[in-house]
Simulated assay, not measured.
Amino acid sequence: MIKYILYFTSFCMLSISYHLAAQVPIYIIAKVVEKSCTIINNDITVDMSIANGKGTVLGEPFQRTPFSIVLKDCPLGTDNAHVRLTTTNSTSSYIENQVAEGNATGYSIVVYNSLNQPLDMQDNWSDFKIDSENAQTNLNFSAAFIKTSNDASAGKFNGIASFEIVYD
């Protein structure tokens, strides 16, 4: 008797599950473009010249220098550029010095977006509006030295960052 009750209960549960199934439509919305914007300056050198670190305060940026990523020939309908800057040499929020000998120590580079907000070099996206009818669009940033140690010393400084751009 117990076997028949279990079989009947299992059969009812399977029947109920089958009758509760439904089809759900999936809508896919996309935009196809044939090309992205042209980046005019693929290799950007930010010349920060000679920075005087004497008397600088720990954690305070100094000698801010503007730079831009310049886009042109953006396809019609490309409205936004989302830019991410990263560095592979550090786990910090800053760009670290790459010079091995005769290097400056206790200093790093902090990068700011167009809203003057410092970027965390490990996790950041900056959003820019693109007017695809204009000849070019400047994605403006700036870089500044920042003293990261009271035991800082003068020397050469070379930092490297990469950028990635996503359009929509």
Rank of each mutant, 00 (worst) to 15 (best):
I28D: 09
P66H: 05
F141I: 07
T86M: 12
Y112K: 05
A21C: 06
P118T: 07
T78D: 05
A161M: 09
Q122L: 05
T38W: 10
G59E: 01
V70D: 12
I2Y: 09
A144Y: 10
D47C: 03
K72L: 09
K147S: 03
D123H: 09
E164P: 07
A81R: 01
I146V: 07
N52P: 00
V32Q: 13
D79R: 09
I40T: 15
S36Y: 08
E96P: 02
S36E: 13
L14Y: 02
I2F: 11
S142Y: 00
N89L: 10
N140A: 13
T105M: 10
N138F: 14
I165F: 12
D120E: 03
I146C: 00
L6S: 06
A30Q: 14
T87Y: 04
C12M: 14
A143C: 07
S17N: 05
I5T: 00
L85M: 10
M13Q: 11
A152N: 05
F11N: 05
E164I: 15
N89Y: 15
F8H: 02
G77H: 05
N52L: 11
F62Y: 14
Q98E: 15
I160A: 13
A100H: 09
F8C: 02
I16C: 03
K72V: 03
Y94K: 10
I26T: 03
S153M: 04
F11R: 03
I69F: 11
N52Y: 08
S17M: 03
P66C: 07
A154T: 15
W125I: 15
V33Y: 12
A143D: 12
H19Q: 14
N52M: 06
P25G: 00
T78Y: 09
F145R: 09
C37D: 09
N113M: 02
E164A: 15
K156Q: 12
S68I: 11
K35V: 01
S17Y: 05
V57C: 01
I50P: 02
D127E: 14
C74S: 01
G159N: 09
S49I: 02
F141R: 07
I5M: 01
N80D: 12
K129G: 11
I95K: 11
V24C: 06
I69L: 12
T45Y: 13
A143K: 08
S93C: 08
M48C: 08
M13E: 02
F67N: 08
M48E: 11
G77T: 03
I69K: 07
N89P: 03
V70P: 04
K3Q: 06
T56G: 02
Y167T: 00
T105D: 10
I160V: 15
V33D: 12
I130P: 03
T88C: 02
L14N: 00
F141M: 10
S92R: 07
L119R: 01
S92H: 01
S49T: 13
N138V: 13
H82G: 02
K3G: 08
S92Y: 09
T45L: 14
I146Y: 06
G102T: 02
L6F: 01
T105H: 07
V46W: 04
E101K: 06
K3W: 08
T87A: 04
N134M: 13
M121Y: 07
S92F: 02
I28A: 11
A152V: 00
N42S: 14
K72Q: 15
K147I: 05
I165C: 12
G59K: 00
